[in-house]
Design a protein around this nucleic acid. Structure first.
Length: 518
RNA sequence: GCUCCCGUGGUGUAGUCCGGUCAAGCAUUUCGGCCUUUCGAGCCGGGGAACCCGGGUUCAAAUCCCGGCGGGAGCACCA
């Protein structure tokens, strides 16, 4: 049965075992997310993605993004984009990233229903800080951080904790108006000093920072910390389900204390594991450093795992989505193998990717004894003959014609051995060394080459084919020859360079493509 | 050290909540075959895990209980 053609095999299955096809279909549809918890507790499902705009989105960010988007759509809810840009000093936001992140999300196919920027919301955070101070749920702590740490480690309160609300509010005003210098005072949320996890004890909520903010300048000198602004916003924006990395586990516990103080229900939380990629840098700080010092070409450098780099390499957003859905919202760290994501991508692009030849590092092969001129017609896609062919006229002079083949293929040319120049002719190598390599015409039938177990190699006409570049995943540039037809391709088009792999056309002329995968 | 999470083939995942139909499904990887001008693509097929270890409950455990071991995350006036 294996010797049948694929068509015949397919027909056999369709006619005799249709149930096999049904099973396949059912399994493909099964890729669904598990249902969300406590749906009845919320007026509507709202998820949020809350990045710091201090770098480009990467494959690791895509995991919570896809889950948030999928759930929002699944339940007719909202996807909220919230920029958490409240730490200009430690994680300075990059102004261009505010729009770049939206672009990346849209490319991923995410529907953004609401959008917020935390640095616009300082008055809101101040309002709640004051209310908590007035209610004795928070306090302004002027202890040195080392001293405070010693106290909370021993489950002991610091002197500031028990001061009356009036004093807390007086201190608060001093934080705002400059009475305290940076580092002299911090607002803490009261929790349980005997909580088993020291990290949740009286955590800091707001601090003084006079570093200029790229959007707000020096308008504010008191800034909220992550847990404070995040916990408030999640409630204020009606977030029902929080999906985020499991590194936020302790933060969930911290934030519940604030919700309790304010009499709010905490959102449902799903902590997902960190997602790694075996190739491609995912660390935002590493990327930023590398870009600043010139190691990387930019946020879309092919060595990076950013969404824009993957996009430039021709990864389809659907492939990322499918991969994330396949991994699922689990708390374990996973390392996605590039093979896996590439396989997903290949499935998507293979049918539409037309075939071309790219001869890397070309060397000349001079063939003699060619009986006459003919045109090699190579299908743009073997499964879609209706798309037409790429034609190369082979016009020998005195029976001689020169082909360009990749230097990498030279080891396939053994003196006396047969080689098939794909779609053109079979030749027998005369002399494999020296330039040009000498070979003689043997015939046109590919079957003869197959029977002789001859290597099949691709080629281009020597001397007339335009140059082109393929940027590889390690940012190395492979230079060679491309088919003239490639110069008419639109940037963004996915193609397959036969025997090399799938590539995305980056620019048509001069021709540059980015290598995606095999 | 402390707090929390997790442990199915090389990799990722299904099944674990509601024990049996699971000597464990799928994808990838790997190997082999096929492809009537074309491949490292495609199509078909094969190989690969007794479900971290030990004990317990049960007629029956990957699935429940206990103990080990292993891995991960967090313990910032970052997010």
């Amino acid at each position: 049965m294996n010797s049948w053609t694929p068509d015949r095999q397919q027909r056999f299955i369709e006619e005799n075992h249709p149930e096999l096809l049904d099973r396949k279909r059912v399994e493909e549809e099964k890729k669904r997310l598990p249902p969300l918890a406590n749906l009845d507790q919320w007026p509507m499902v709202k998820t949020r993605f809350a990045p710091n705009p201090d770098g480009a989105l990467h494959l690791g960010s895509a995991e919570p993004i896809i889950f948030c988007d999928e759930y929002a759509k699944m339940y007719g809810g909202h996807f909220i984009l919230r920029y958490e840009d409240t730490s200009a000093e430690v994680k300075p936001p990059i102004p261009e990233m505010y729009s770049a992140i939206v672009e990346d999300l849209e490319w991923l196919g995410v529907r953004i229903d609401e959008r917020y920027v935390q640095s616009d919301r300082l008055p809101i955070y101040y309002e709640y800080a004051e209310r908590l101070l007035a209610d004795g749920k928070a306090y302004v702590c002027t202890c040195e951080s080392e001293a405070f740490k010693a106290l909370y480690t021993a489950s002991k309160p610091c002197p500031c904790r028990e001061l009356p609300p009036s004093e807390q509010l007086r201190r608060w005003r001093m934080m705002l108006d400059g009475g305290y210098a940076k580092g002299d005072a911090v607002v803490r949320v009261k929790t349980d000093l005997s909580h088993p996890n020291p990290a949740v004890r009286d955590w800091p909520a707001l601090r003084i920072s006079e570093y200029p903010h790229p959007l707000q300048g020096t308008r504010y000198r008191v800034w909220p910390l992550y847990n404070f602004s995040c916990a408030l916003d999640d409630h204020l924006m009606g977030v029902s389900h929080v999906i985020r990395g499991k590194e936020h586990d302790v933060n969930t516990t911290r934030q519940r204390w604030l919700h309790r103080h304010l009499g709010w229900r905490s959102p449902e939380v799903i902590n997902v594991g960190r997602l790694g990629l075996e190739v491609g840098i995912l660390s935002k700080s590493k990327m930023r450093r590398g870009i600043e010092d010139g190691t990387y070409l930019g946020w879309d450098d092919p060595r990076l795992g950013t969404l824009r780099a993957l996009r430039r390499r021709g990864l389809q957003p659907e492939a990322i989505r499918a991969t994330m859905l396949h991994v699922g919202p689990k708390p374990v760290n996973v390392t996605i193998s590039w093979d896996n994501i590439a396989a997903e991508n290949r499935r998507l692009i293979e049918p539409s990717s037309n075939r071309y030849f790219f001869v890397v590092d070309p060397v000349e092969v001079r063939v003699t004894g060619i009986p006459g001129p003919h045109t090699a017609r190579l299908p743009l896609h073997p499964d879609h003959p209706e798309r037409g062919t790429r034609d190369h006229a082979i016009e020998p002079v005195d029976g001689e014609y020169s082909f360009a083949v990749s230097r990498d293929d030279l080891d396939k040319l053994r003196a006396g051995g047969m080689v098939r120049l794909m779609g053109a002719m079979n030749v027998v190598v005369g002399s494999e060394s020296g330039a040009p390599v000498q070979a003689s015409y043997h015939g046109r039938e590919h079957q003869a080459a197959r029977e002789a177990q001859a290597p099949f190699i691709h080629w281009l006409p020597w001397g007339v084919s335009p140059g082109g570049t393929v940027v590889m995943p390690d940012a190395q540039e492979a230079r060679g020859l491309v088919e003239r037809a490639c110069l008419a391709l639109d940037p963004g088009t996915m193609i397959q360079f036969e025997r090399l792999g799938f590539c995305r056309v980056d620019r048509a002329s001069p021709f540059v493509a980015y290598y995606a995968h095999k």
